[in-house]
């Protein structure tokens, strides 16, 4: 029942996303008006008038607003996002081509972030207030504040391309000769290419996540059931790692929801610097080429995927923690 109700709530969200995106498409001024063409004067010349009509249709200014809005809905429901203005390939095809790169990069990033932040957070919680704890917090804050594109430039300058140390390639997803490699060599090749981008994309997230785990674990350690577990005579280790930690990790699921927009949107800057052909790079290139259909499709696509992702995390959360009811998640 909860799942059905929660799923139905997606409908207004979806309508909202589409409506906002629609008004986004209207931001570009009418190209006909902008070019200073005089429609009245052009009426006399039939070829020019015809061209004007075509131009208006191409940019979607030939019909009233509400008709265009309806057309957008029709396009979304039939999954037809028209063609790119650059290479005239279907927009959907370009998106589906780019998505796996972004997803791979970001899923690896998220896994590494969690693998490193959880032990750090647990350590900080168990040694709360110690010198090492404040040292960790300080260092993680410094890392959090380092602009990732700056670090990316510095890493590229000193660890790639041969100026100082030539450990890593300058960018890209795999080597030109990747087709000749066997499966494991291929994986190794991709890992070699992705090392720097992943380093740059993980270090900023440690601070937030480990701090979250720390406070969550501290709270769990103060609760009644921990006192009960201790009173039963369980070892300190068992109390912490089995009883407290397991419960304090549940809120991490909601944090996933917060990471999702970035996951689908792709880190535009990193993909651009390391020339990884994912969603972010596609967005960047389309913006430079004024490729409106692709820009709009990326905005819409990433928003809808994020919405579905948030829905999924909500479901997982209720499965893990049955106390959450619909009304509670509403007043969150």
């Amino acid at each position: 029942m909860y799942f059905l109700k929660r799923s139905l709530w997606m409908i207004p969200t979806l309508i909202g996303i589409v409506t906002i995106t629609f008004f986004l498409t209207r931001l570009r001024p009418d190209p006909v008006a902008q070019k200073g063409l005089n429609p009245d004067a052009m009426q006399e010349n039939s070829a020019a008038a015809q061209h004007l009509e075509q131009l208006k249709e191409y940019y979607g200014y030939d019909k009233p607003l509400i008709v265009q809005y309806g057309k957008m809905w029709k396009n979304i429901l039939t999954l037809d996002f028209s063609n790119s203005r650059i290479d005239h390939r279907p927009v959907l095809e370009k998106l589906i081509e780019a998505l796996p790169y972004t997803l791979t990069l970001n899923i690896i990033t998220v896994i590494i972030v969690y693998l490193i932040s959880i032990p750090l957070g647990v350590y900080s919680a168990l040694h709360d207030g110690s010198k090492t704890d404040s040292m960790i917090t300080f260092l993680l804050y410094l890392l959090y504040s380092l602009p990732s594109f700056w670090i990316a430039l510095l890493l590229l300058k000193y660890f790639a391309g041969g100026d100082f140390l030539n450990f890593f390639p300058l960018g890209g997803w795999q080597s030109d000769y990747a087709d000749d490699l066997n499966f494991f060599q291929k994986i190794g090749d991709i890992a070699w290419h992705l090392f720097l981008p992943i380093v740059v994309s993980v270090y900023g997230s440690f601070a937030f996540l480990s701090r979250f785990i720390k406070s969550s674990l501290l709270e769990a350690l103060r609760s009644e059931y921990i006192r009960t577990a201790k009173a039963k005579g369980l070892s300190q280790r068992r109390v912490i790692y089995v009883h407290a930690l397991r419960n304090s990790l549940i809120p991490l699921i909601t944090l996933m929801a917060g990471l999702l927009p970035g996951l689908f949107g792709g880190s535009v800057i990193l993909e651009q610097i390391f020339s990884i052909p994912g969603m972010g790079k596609l967005a960047y290139d389309s913006i430079y080429a004024n490729d409106d259909p692709v820009i709009i499709a990326i905005v819409l696509f990433s928003a809808i995927l994020t919405m579905l992702g948030i829905l999924l995390t909500d479901f997982v959360y209720t499965l893990v923690d049955p106390r959450i009811s619909f009304s509670e998640s509403e007043s969150k």
């Binding site: 986004l24 389309s286 905005v299």
Partner: peptide
């Protein structure tokens, strides 16, 4: 209910992509 829904809608858009799209069009 209405305002929370609105907040949720805006959260769904990845900020940098949204900003880039707007700046591409204006």
């Amino acid at each position: 209910l209405a305002l929370s829904r609105f907040i949720e809608i805006v959260i769904c858009f990845p900020t940098l992509i949204l900003i880039m799209a707007v700046l591409a069009l204006i």
